[in-house]
Simulated scan of single mutants.
Amino acid sequence: MSKVTVVTGGSRGIGAATCRLLAERGHDLAVGYRRDQAAADEVVQSASKLGVRAIAVRLDTVVRDQVVHLFDRAEAELGEITGLVNNAGIGSTIGPFVDLTEADLRRVVDVNVVGYFLVAQEAVRRMSAGGSIVNVSSGAATTGSPNEYVHYAATKAAVDTMTVGLSKELGPRGIRINTVSPGVTHTEFHVGSGEPGRADRVGPNLPLGRAGRPEEIAYAIAWLLSDEASYTTGATVRVAGGG
């Protein structure tokens, strides 16, 4: 059976690196993106050159109808869904907890928690023959990110708990669900935090002495989706350079 994998937030950063690696390993791909169509199209073109099928679908993961549309397109054009990389998340400007705006709080919770649930729910509905889901969380879930973005960290802790609960509920249906928790990584995520160079600042303080690369996170995601991880569910794989 061919592997058909949906990747949300697939146009940039960890999502794009994951799409490219999965294409190398023979996955057909539905690349979900929110804004950057050119970047999503580039990911699709890269995958197509490797001989797999790929489509790009624009959506906001907090809108159920758009989530359903993503999966409808994926099934219609690629076939039965076997995998999901639940990756579309956001942060907001770094700062003290008391300076956090209600608008930022609500949007981060909406995308990072509600969006993850809506996407996973739709994937599960389509996985009649079993499958594998990887939630992309963050090392912040256990550090709490004080003085930076406690609200973001809290949403990622929610994702970790979601993984544990769903792994127990869905295991009998042959659906595995795991989490990858990246540490600080060289992506555009830090632009939205107001400190584009954060990875360069934090990286040298980690045990491995540097920030991660998107490709290094992608390898962990790809392994969890693979048959090599057939007995792994409810796990959190931390890829954080020792941090």
Rank of each mutant, 00 (worst) to 15 (best):
199 A>P: 09
92 S>I: 00
118 L>K: 06
237 V>R: 08
213 R>S: 00
213 R>T: 00
211 A>T: 02
81 I>S: 06
113 V>R: 07
232 T>D: 12
148 E>G: 11
20 R>I: 09
190 H>P: 04
98 V>F: 09
62 V>D: 01
231 Y>G: 15
155 T>E: 14
226 S>C: 05
188 E>T: 12
1 M>K: 01
67 V>K: 10
49 K>C: 09
219 Y>L: 06
16 A>Y: 12
166 L>R: 05
198 R>Y: 10
93 T>P: 00
132 S>D: 09
88 A>S: 14
187 T>A: 09
61 T>D: 06
76 A>G: 02
44 V>I: 07
124 V>T: 10
134 V>E: 01
144 G>I: 00
139 G>D: 11
68 V>G: 10
27 H>F: 15
95 G>H: 03
175 I>Q: 02
176 R>G: 03
1 M>W: 00
138 S>K: 08
68 V>P: 03
157 A>S: 11
87 N>R: 13
132 S>T: 07
22 L>W: 15
123 A>S: 13
199 A>V: 02
168 K>H: 06
221 I>M: 06
238 R>F: 14
111 V>Y: 01
174 G>M: 11
98 V>D: 10
111 V>L: 04
26 G>T: 08
176 R>H: 10
32 G>F: 02
211 A>G: 12
24 E>D: 15
20 R>Q: 14
97 F>S: 13
182 P>L: 02
176 R>M: 08
43 V>W: 12
221 I>L: 06
86 N>S: 15
123 A>V: 07
31 V>D: 03
145 S>M: 12
135 N>K: 04
240 A>M: 13
238 R>H: 15
147 N>L: 05
107 R>L: 01
131 G>D: 05
106 R>L: 04
149 Y>T: 05
70 L>C: 13
156 K>D: 13
219 Y>H: 04
79 G>Q: 08
96 P>A: 15
86 N>K: 15
166 L>A: 05
200 D>C: 09
63 V>N: 10
203 G>T: 07
228 E>P: 09
140 A>C: 04
41 D>P: 01
126 R>A: 06
41 D>A: 03
89 G>V: 07
61 T>I: 12
72 D>P: 02
157 A>Y: 00
124 V>L: 11
54 A>N: 01
173 R>T: 04
69 H>S: 15
161 T>Y: 11
72 D>H: 06
73 R>Q: 13
170 L>R: 06
206 L>H: 14
8 T>V: 10
209 G>Y: 02
192 G>Q: 05
151 H>Y: 00
197 G>I: 00
143 T>K: 14
108 V>E: 12
118 L>F: 05
163 T>D: 05
29 L>N: 06
177 I>W: 09
233 T>N: 12
37 Q>P: 09
148 E>C: 10
197 G>T: 05
196 P>E: 15
197 G>C: 04
173 R>Q: 08
160 D>N: 13
76 A>C: 02
172 P>A: 07
228 E>A: 08
209 G>V: 02
135 N>V: 01
72 D>I: 03
239 V>F: 08
153 A>K: 04
31 V>P: 03
95 G>Y: 01
58 R>W: 05
200 D>T: 03
224 L>E: 05
92 S>T: 00
234 G>C: 05
224 L>S: 07
